[in-house]
Design a protein around this nucleic acid. Structure first.
Length: 273
DNA sequence: AGATCGGCCTGGACGC
DNA sequence: TGCGTCCAGGCCGATC
């Protein structure tokens, strides 16, 4: 998959990998010697019983016969899994880790090295701070308008920075943060979001993410097509990467700013402070 | 303790 | 053409 993986993209990866990984025994794991690949040798000799997702993290449950372990994977920006028998796939210099399974070989390819793989005791995320403090899944009953309001009220960071922190809700990255804030008509720099606006943002996040899951993620290729004025996903991004274009709601030109160190596009007319 | 900022890493876009 | 510079992105750790 091409793309900057956010929740919808990671969910798509999970669905593709699950049938090929469930029940497979891991013979060995190899990785480049970096801290971002830790504890992987513990996976050797285990069996994968399930592949779950929390936010942008993939969690493979490993059965050792005794203690339960978890293989935690984050794709970063450019991480991707490839089976060695995949059509057209030849391992290249960007393969950072390899899992030898009982029926094949799975490569982890990651050009920009932002991805991470680690094996931990099941549920022990002490060394993975973002996962340990991860907010509720946006499409689960645990995510509520009231809960979102309370989470946002607990911090004075700009609302967009809060969304990117993964704490109020899991899995939202730069693309869907801009899209949801635009949809909810909330200024990304707002430091106070009241109950009504929180409820709008709650609904917008769920709509934006559910729609993206339905079409298996907005890929970077699609984004390029958007800027190339063509492509079947051209109408899906209302804000992200659309600076200078007229707002779809009010016609004012969308503006590019920086919030929390991240490029941000919003409508200065209908997303007022 | 919470907010903020730089670093990580690389290819691609851009300017000269 | 080819070089240099800047940017993007999620997360982490250092600093304010």
């Amino acid at each position: 998959m091409v793309g900057v993986p956010e929740l919808p993209e990671v969910e798509s990866v999970r669905r593709q990998l699950l049938p090929r990984l469930a029940g497979r025994a891991i013979r060995a794991v190899d990785a480049v010697p970096q801290a971002r690949f830790s504890g992987l040798s513990r996976a050797a000799g285990t069996t994968i019983t399930d592949l779950r997702r929390r936010g942008k993290y993939l969690l493979a449950d490993l059965d050792t016969g005794q203690d339960a372990l978890e293989l935690v994977a984050h794709l970063g920006m450019t991480g991707a899994f490839r089976f060695r028998d995949e059509e057209g796939w030849e391992p290249d210099a960007y393969v950072r880790a390899t899992l030898v399974l009982d029926d094949g070989v799975l490569d982890f390819r990651d050009v920009r090295r932002f991805g991470r793989l680690s094996v931990v005791d099941a549920g022990d995320y002490a060394d993975i701070a973002t996962l340990a403090a991860l907010g509720p899944e946006p499409l689960s009953p645990a995510f509520t308008p009231e809960g979102l309001h309370a989470a946002l009220a607990a911090s004075r960071q700009p609302v967009k920075a809060q969304l990117l922190s993964q704490r109020p809700v899991a899995g939202v990255g730069n693309i869907y943060a801009d899209e949801a804030l635009w949809s909810a008509r909330i200024n990304p720099r707002s430091r106070r979001v009241g109950p009504e606006r929180a409820a709008r943002l709650w609904a917008a996040l769920r709509e934006v993410l559910a729609a993206a899951i339905d079409r298996e993620g907005t890929t970077f290729r699609d984004y390029q097509m958007v800027n190339g004025q063509s492509g079947r996903y051209a109408t899906h991004l209302a804000a992200y990467g659309q600076a200078g274009r007229p707002c779809r709601r009010c016609g004012a030109p969308l503006r590019a700013i920086t919030v929390g160190g991240r490029g941000t596009t919003y409508c200065p007319a209908c997303q007022r402070q």
